[in-house]
């Protein structure tokens, strides 16, 4: 459906021709790197694959051309992700499809065509993002090296006893550290502690 709309739109633009059509992420990356087009129209709602992943692999493969995104996803997080991958236009489906020809033309002239409401959603998301980054750095600097060590071991799934043995300290001491850790992370259980620490980027879950 999208392909049809894009074909029609491009036919109406005098200086634009379609050099390739792809219906999967890998095919798009393949086409982009072999044909180096000036512009790619990317539908974020391909079945079976996350659209942002497609964008990421497209940029990751070295595609430096312009990107016009169309998607049903209009949440701030997705739009912000797309903007971080340097997309030039983002049109919501289905309404935005009507403006796709105009968006392609403007983008080729060097303008951006992010739908204003979507840009606003991305800005709100940026606010949340900044707040969370600040929080994570604050929590991080409040942890002692010992607490950090214990956090890693908690994430590995060790019991208090095992942690005590590993670090050669008494289980009582471990409990004290863990209590302090919970307080600093503002959580009440190990699962919460690990998930909060992971969401703050303090540990990586393998």
């Amino acid at each position: 459906m999208i392909l049809g709309v894009v074909r029609l739109a491009c036919d109406a633009l005098p200086d634009v021709e379609i050099v390739a059509e792809a219906s999967s992420g890998p095919a798009a990356v393949e086409a982009a790197s072999s044909l180096t087009p000036d512009l790619a129209v990317v539908d974020l709602d391909l079945p079976g694959i996350d659209g942002v992943t497609v964008l990421r692999s497209l940029r990751g493969s070295g595609f430096g051309g312009r990107i016009v995104v169309v998607s049903e996803r209009t949440d701030g997080a997705t739009v912000l992700d797309a903007m971080r991958l340097d997309v030039d236009a983002y049109l919501p489906k289905p309404d935005g499809l009507r403006r796709i020809g105009e968006a392609i033309r403007r983008v080729l002239e060097g303008e951006r065509a992010i739908d204003p409401a979507l840009e606003q959603a991305a800005v709100l998301e940026l606010g949340r993002f900044a707040r969370q980054a600040r929080e994570s750095s604050e929590v991080d600097s409040s942890l002692t090296p010992r607490e950090r060590e214990i956090l890693e071991l908690l994430a590995e799934g060790l019991t208090m006893q095992q942690i005590g043995r590993r670090l050669d300290i008494s289980p009582r001491t471990v409990e004290t550290h863990v209590a302090n850790l919970y307080r600093k992370l503002a959580v009440r259980s190990r699962v919460q502690a690990v998930s909060r620490a992971a969401s703050l980027g303090l540990i990586e879950l393998r």
């Binding site: 912000l80 971080r84 991958l85 940026l126 993002f129 900044a130 980054a133 980027g201």
Partner: peptide
């Protein structure tokens, strides 16, 4: 917006 977010994330990582 995208560049600002990249920069904030890098800052968080460095911190």
């Amino acid at each position: 917006v995208g560049q600002i977010a990249d920069s904030i994330e890098l800052r968080r990582d460095l911190d």
